[in-house]
């Protein structure tokens, strides 16, 4: 019974909370800027306001709108599926299902801007592709190594694990992919405001923009939540404590990421993927060495 209550609370929170966390991030950023900053609920005010605005449909944008709805539904489904499968094992291959869903999600995400006939939108989309080819592709590789090393494919099996150096290195790489996927500086090159005028979301307005932002916040939450669970699974072996600890870790991570984003500048589309690739390859190589040395 308590499990049901916890999982429902976590599911509801993981949809509502990301937008509040965005407010927290803005507040932290403001503090680093030496100013007061918006109220913590500001991001929610923004989204509610957007739902009350007129819907201006961009030209030839039916595809974009449909894809966006698909994106939102998949994203919500993904977060619900993750939360539920941590406590109640749904299949033997929960982690694999989540990886697959995430990749589908990413594909939808990068195809939205490409369907909008706006130069900035298309440019933002193609930049997102360049980044995805490194970041999300490496995400799969890293998860592949994780499954290969440990042989686990669902959260239930995490209890069998104990922390080793090579796993920790792999998880560090996973956290970095999470940082990049969350579209923060220096890797926000797709929506780089001064260059591309908000890039991939330039043509959205009103409720559609609201839905997009909401989805984006949930996405940011997910890319931190998932590595946190895998990481904490090494130490915590009861599902309920794991999910609650995972939730709290995500909030802490969000704050750390916010600080990192505030003190860095934006990278460039030809620099970012190469830098990332170097980092990932080094980390993966280290973990392979570690695996064979059994440390």
């Amino acid at each position: 019974m308590i499990e049901h209550i916890v999982v429902s609370i976590i599911v509801v929170l993981s949809i509502i909370f990301p937008t509040i966390l965005d407010g927290v991030e803005r507040k932290i950023k403001a503090r680093i800027h030496s100013r007061i900053g918006p109220p913590i609920l500001q991001s929610w005010y923004d989204i509610i306001k957007l739902f009350g605005k007129e819907q201006v449909m961009p030209r030839n944008s039916l595809h974009a709108v449909m894809l966006l709805i698909l994106l939102t539904i998949t994203q919500v489904f993904l977060i619900v599926y993750t939360s539920v499968s941590i406590i109640f094992q749904i299949t033997q291959f929960d982690i694999v299902v989540i990886i697959a869903l995430f990749i589908i999600l990413q594909t939808i995400f990068i195809s939205i801007p490409l369907t909008i006939p706006n130069t900035f939108s298309v440019l933002g989309g193609s930049r997102e592709i360049a980044l995805t080819l490194v970041n999300e592709a490496l995400f799969i590789v890293i998860m592949g190594f994780f499954i290969y090393y440990t042989g686990i494919t669902s959260f239930k099996q995490l209890t069998q694990l104990s922390p080793t150096v090579y796993l920790l290195i792999l998880l560090l790489a996973l956290f970095i992919t999470g940082y990049v996927s969350s579209g923060r500086i220096p890797f926000d090159i797709a929506e780089a405001e001064p260059e591309l005028a908000s890039g991939l979301m330039i043509e959205f307005s009103g409720p559609i923009l609201g839905v997009f932002l909401l989805t984006f916040h949930i996405r940011r939450f997910f890319v931190k939540f998932f590595p946190s669970i895998l990481f904490l699974g090494l130490f915590i072996h009861t599902p309920i404590s794991l999910i609650i600890a995972g939730f709290i870790t995500t909030i802490i991570l969000w704050i750390i990421y916010a600080v990192i984003a505030a003190i860095l500048g934006r990278s460039r589309v030809d620099l970012a993927p190469i830098t990332l690739l170097k980092i990932y390859l080094v980390l993966i190589a280290l973990s392979i060495i570690g695996y064979y040395l059994k440390v």
Partner: peptide, 9 residues
């Protein structure tokens, strides 16, 4: 620097 400056708003 941000810490030293405090909130100036």
């Amino acid at each position: 620097i941000a810490g030293e400056a405090g909130r100036v708003t």
